[in-house]
Amino acid sequence: MYILRCADDSYYTGSTRNLLRRLEQHQSGKGANHTRKFGPVELIYYEEFTRIDWAFYREKQVQGWSRRKKEALINSRPVDLKQFAECQNLSHFKYKE
Rank of each mutant, 00 (worst) to 15 (best):
M1V: 09
L4S: 00
R5W: 05
C6M: 14
C6P: 00
C6D: 05
D8S: 09
D8W: 06
Y11I: 02
Y11C: 05
Y12D: 06
Y12L: 14
G14M: 06
G14D: 00
S15V: 01
T16L: 01
T16S: 09
R17A: 04
N18Y: 05
N18I: 04
N18K: 12
N18P: 04
N18S: 14
L19R: 15
L19P: 01
L19Q: 03
L20M: 11
R21P: 02
R21T: 13
R21D: 14
R21F: 09
E24T: 12
Q25E: 15
Q25H: 09
Q25A: 11
Q25P: 02
Q27F: 03
Q27P: 00
S28T: 13
S28C: 10
S28I: 05
S28P: 01
G29Q: 10
G29N: 12
G29S: 11
G31P: 01
A32H: 03
A32Q: 03
A32V: 02
N33S: 10
H34M: 12
H34S: 13
T35A: 06
R36H: 11
R36K: 10
K37C: 08
K37L: 14
F38T: 03
G39C: 09
P40V: 00
P40E: 00
V41F: 00
E42L: 12
E42P: 02
E42A: 10
L43N: 01
L43M: 02
L43A: 00
I44A: 11
Y46H: 15
E47F: 03
E48N: 10
F49S: 10
F49R: 06
T50L: 04
T50H: 03
T50M: 03
T50E: 13
I52L: 14
D53L: 05
W54H: 14
A55N: 07
F56Y: 05
Y57N: 14
R58G: 11
R58V: 04
E59K: 11
E59C: 08
Q63T: 11
Q63E: 15
G64M: 06
G64P: 13
W65M: 15
W65H: 12
W65F: 09
W65N: 11
S66A: 12
S66R: 01
S66E: 09
R67P: 08
R68E: 00
R68P: 01
R68V: 00
R68T: 04
E71L: 15
A72Q: 09
A72W: 02
L73H: 06
L73Y: 05
I74T: 04
N75T: 04
N75H: 08
N75G: 04
S76A: 14
V79C: 10
V79H: 14
D80L: 15
L81H: 08
K82Q: 10
K82V: 07
Q83S: 08
F84T: 06
A85R: 07
E86S: 07
E86D: 06
C87Y: 04
C87E: 13
Q88H: 07
Q88G: 04
N89E: 15
N89C: 12
L90T: 12
S91R: 09
S91H: 08
F93I: 06
F93C: 03
K94T: 08
K94Y: 07
E97S: 09
E97M: 08
E97P: 11
